[in-house]
């Protein structure tokens, strides 16, 4: 697969059309979660053509943003009530990405100004994120917003300034995308931005799918679509396993 991508990229470089300034591809566009799944590493390849920048003579920067499926996520804050600490306040983010990673060829601050990233909505500080409040959707309280990023980053689900985009040369670049074992399933988007002199000159997006497969998929679907029968099955499995254990234990 990697070789295929490389051949594709090289061919494209040789016969590249002026219309498409940027192409990217992933070493694997479909991640399958099976019993041995412990996270996954993918490689993203990309190349810029001469219409956007002259890859041989111009310096350019690459920022790659990978975004997972959006789900309702609740952040809770503990407070001391009497002698014990309990969850007191909570804030719900109806559409927080389940995975969010920013990889760049240099530290973000060197690529463009904070204001530029703000206008593109790139990075932990700029990702558009709304919270559910009494007055409808509104900008979240900063403490809860930063807690969301801190906690998700500690689980490797949100990543920034940790993955490097490497210039291979001749306009070709690559980066590793790291998905942890707890990655949510669903449709992902991989967006690539080419920066020159602090602003975007080219961008593209490609999809990435993460899904449970085979037995894992079947078990999950069974538990969620037929929960009553799943429960019955769990009981039957337990009764027979317990009986079997008793028989074996005697010997």
């Amino acid at each position: 697969m990697k070789q295929l991508v490389a051949i594709f990229v090289i061919t494209w470089l040789a016969f590249g059309s002026a219309a498409a300034a940027l192409v990217t591809d992933l070493s694997n566009k479909r991640i399958e979660i099976r019993y041995s799944f412990d996270g996954a590493d993918l490689i993203l390849f990309g190349a810029v053509g001469s219409s956007a920048v002259d890859p041989v003579n111009d310096d350019f920067d690459v920022v790659i943003v990978v975004r997972g499926p959006e789900t309702e996520t609740v952040v809770r804050q503990k407070k001391k009530v009497g002698p014990i600490w309990i969850n007191a306040d909570s804030l719900s983010f109806p559409a927080a990405p389940g995975y969010y990673a920013v990889a760049a060829s240099r530290p973000l601050a060197e690529i463009a100004s904070d204001a530029a990233f703000g206008s593109y909505g790139i990075g932990f500080d700029h990702l558009p994120l709304l919270a559910r409040t009494e007055r409808g959707l509104a900008a979240p309280e900063p403490a809860f917003r930063s807690a969301l990023f801190r906690l998700q980053a500690s689980k490797d689900l949100y990543r920034q300034e940790r993955d490097q985009v490497v210039h291979v040369g001749e306009g070709l670049f690559k980066t590793d995308i790291r998905l942890p074992a707890s990655v949510p399933v669903g449709e992902f988007l991989v967006e690539t931005f080419i920066f020159k002199n602090g602003s975007i000159v080219a961008r593209n997006r490609i999809p990435l799918a993460v899904d449970k497969e085979g037995f894992e998929r079947a078990a999950y679907d069974f538990a969620h679509n037929y929960p009553f029968w799943y429960g019955i099955t769990a009981v039957i499995v337990a009764l027979s396993a317990g009986w079997l254990a008793g028989v074996l234990g005697k010997k």
Partner: peptide
């Protein structure tokens, strides 16, 4: 506990048969 397993399966889908069987294996 069998009834509890069914109630939790229906309400919250949080019963993991595989985890239960592995724990049982060790416990035996």
């Amino acid at each position: 506990t069998a009834l509890t397993t069914i109630f939790h399966s229906v309400n919250t889908q949080t019963v993991d048969i595989f985890l239960a069987v592995l724990l049982l294996f060790g416990a035996v």
